[in-house]
Design a protein around this nucleic acid. Structure first.
Length: 511
RNA sequence: GGGGCCGUAGCUCAGCGGUAGAGCAAGGGACUUUUAAUCCUUUGGUCCAGGGUUCGAAUCCCUGCGGCCCCA
């Protein structure tokens, strides 16, 4: 590649090897050629266009705060140092204004021919939008009242060879924004802030748990049995062991092994993989929190869930009441708690205790009923009717046992499992159980599930090693799972999971 | 899986049967207080791909590719 190291061959477009922009007949090539000429010019000027260590940089936000306290007429502002990317460049002859951006914000820089001197001024002529520069100068206000760093020197830090997107609209095309997330982060309104909020949210989730003496662990992501949830796994193969491997679809069964191992309070924040559909709420890999607390139950986990969400909202700066998916959401705790059967009866008018009544209600909504487990029919009816009605955070509690093979049954009613799911805006955000710790019942439930349900419907994969662990004694416990991406959506107001995942899955770009 | 919408210059978009347009960006020129700077000027395209209809297709139809949305 042409670079500054060939000063005696300054402009690549004049090299016999490199076709001129016109030869290539492409605007993109012409734009690149213009930048490469400046790259070569920098070399001639003895400037390294790729830059070096640049210490003691102050953030734009810091400097803005400092300038707020200054008298705008003050000509003797402090000497400061900034570094950032050129987002805007206004050339007024022997005076050039830059809008420089770092991750904290933007600040204006003024470069004057007289002020920077004859050594540096030719370098100013090599600046393009997208270049990264460092500036030393005096902090103050321009004539029009803009906070400005009046440069006394300019340090070139990195040349950009590519043309940046439209300086005003930025990248609009959703495909390009995802394929070139780095540009989306630079130019997209609120994008960097949203992903920063995601980081704060995850920090808050972690802190909420560690403050409660939870231990954070890392379970295996390569499993031999895809257990702990109902989902199709990604399958692969381990060569040395010559055996099939699946990517994990849940964190559950290994965390429970650690409860057996006496860790008492454990959690994992990690990626899980499900080989299923892609939508505004589904990405094949997503981030899940699972937490298990010995001697607790699902009510313990409701309290924990509220604490996690409220702390996360605070960390993200999300007000208690805000709009999401076009609805007004109120995050005030305690969240509503409503029994599964009560909601189903309320919305559909059927009798949840009577399988025939449930089936009849399901049939009117074109849900397949023939030969299916009554609790599965009930579950589909619930999904089709009740979920969308749950706008404000609602703990749906006490699920039909038939769809909860890993959950402890109610002491007085074995048909009901001590499970809750948390819904907001019709979206499932969390799922929790009083954990089943009876190894014999667990094994039996795995078996009946395997016998009675399709793979897709069943959460059960017979896992003898897990049963063996339960046989050694897992303390009674509450367990919780939270979809972190969806939580971030809720707290940042994003309507698509792709807006909260830096690099969501995409088909490869056509050549 | 079913339905709808979209793909035109590096970016943002117009054109929707008569042979390619604008703004920004880029090149040249002017300007020492601009801020989406301004002014003058120049350049820039396999109209996603492949078929079809037509005297004529960016435009209409089909298929494919990529994307977005809705439903299951």
């Amino acid at each position: 590649m042409a670079s500054s190291e060939t000063p005696d061959n300054p402009a690549p477009s004049t090299s016999p090897e490199a076709p001129t922009a016109a030869d290539r007949g492409s605007t993109a090539a012409a734009l690149e050629a213009a930048r490469r000429e400046k790259l070569a010019k920098l070399g001639e000027l003895g400037v390294d266009p790729w830059g070096h260590r640049f210490d003691n940089v102050q953030s734009m936000a810091e400097l803005r705060a400092e300038a707020e306290g200054m008298d705008p007429a003050d000509q003797e502002g402090p000497t400061v140092r900034v570094a950032g990317r050129i987002l805007l460049l206004r050339n007024a002859g022997r005076l050039v204004f830059l809008t420089l951006a770092d991750r904290s914000g933007r600040i204006q820089v003024m470069l004057g021919k007289k002020q920077v001197g004859p050594e540096v001024w030719p370098v100013v002529g090599c600046l393009d939008l997208g270049d990264i520069v460092g500036v030393d100068g005096r902090l103050g206000y321009s004539n029009s009242g803009e906070i400005t760093v009046f440069a006394s020197s300019l340090t070139f830090l990195t040349k950009s060879i590519e043309t940046p997107p439209d300086k005003y609209h930025g990248l609009v095309d959703a495909e390009l924004r995802q394929r070139m997330r780095y540009l989306d982060l630079i130019h997209g309104d609120g994008v960097l802030e949203r992903f920063t909020a995601r980081i704060r949210i995850i920090e808050a989730v972690r802190r909420t748990l560690t403050d409660r003496r939870y231990l954070e662990v890392e379970g295996p992501t390569l499993h031999t049995i895809a257990g702990g949830a109902a989902a199709r796994p990604f399958a692969t193969h381990h060569n040395a062991l010559d055996m099939p491997i699946v990517m994990r679809i849940a964190l559950e069964l290994h965390l429970k092994r650690l409860l057996v191992g006496g860790m008492e309070r454990v959690f994992e924040l990690g990626r899980v993989y499900r080989n299923e559909g892609i939508s505004t709420r589904h990405n094949p890999e997503f981030t899940m929190l699972e937490a298990y607390e010995a001697y607790g139950n699902y009510e313990t986990m409701m309290d924990l869930t509220e604490a996690i969400i409220l702390n996360a909202a605070e960390a993200a700066g999300t007000p208690t009441q805000h709009a999401w998916m076009g609805k007004e959401i109120d995050l005030s705790a305690p969240f509503r708690r409503a029994r599964y059967d009560d909601l189903l009866a309320e919305v559909t008018g059927c009798d949840p205790a009577d399988p025939a009544s449930v089936a009849a209600a399901a049939a009117t909504r074109e849900i397949e009923t023939a030969g299916r487990h009554p609790d599965v029919i009930k579950s589909e009816l619930f999904e089709a009717t009740v979920e969308e009605k749950l706008i404000n955070p609602t703990f749906v509690i006490d699920y039909p046992a038939g769809v909860c093979p890993l959950t402890k049954r109610k002491r007085d009613n074995p048909a009901i499992a001590e499970r809750f799911e948390l819904y907001v805006c019709g979206m499932e955000l969390a799922n929790a159980y009083t954990e089943l710790n009876d190894p014999d019942l667990q094994e039996e439930l795995f078996r009946t599930q395997l016998a009675g349900l399709d793979d897709d419907e069943s959460m059960a994969r017979m896992d003898h090693d897990f049963i063996k662990a339960l046989r050694h004694g897992m303390p009674p416990a509450g367990g919780l799972g939270i979809g972190i991406d969806r939580l971030v959506m809720l707290l940042t107001g994003a309507s698509s999971i792709r807006d909260v995942i830096l690099f969501p899955i995409q088909r490869p770009q056509a050549e």
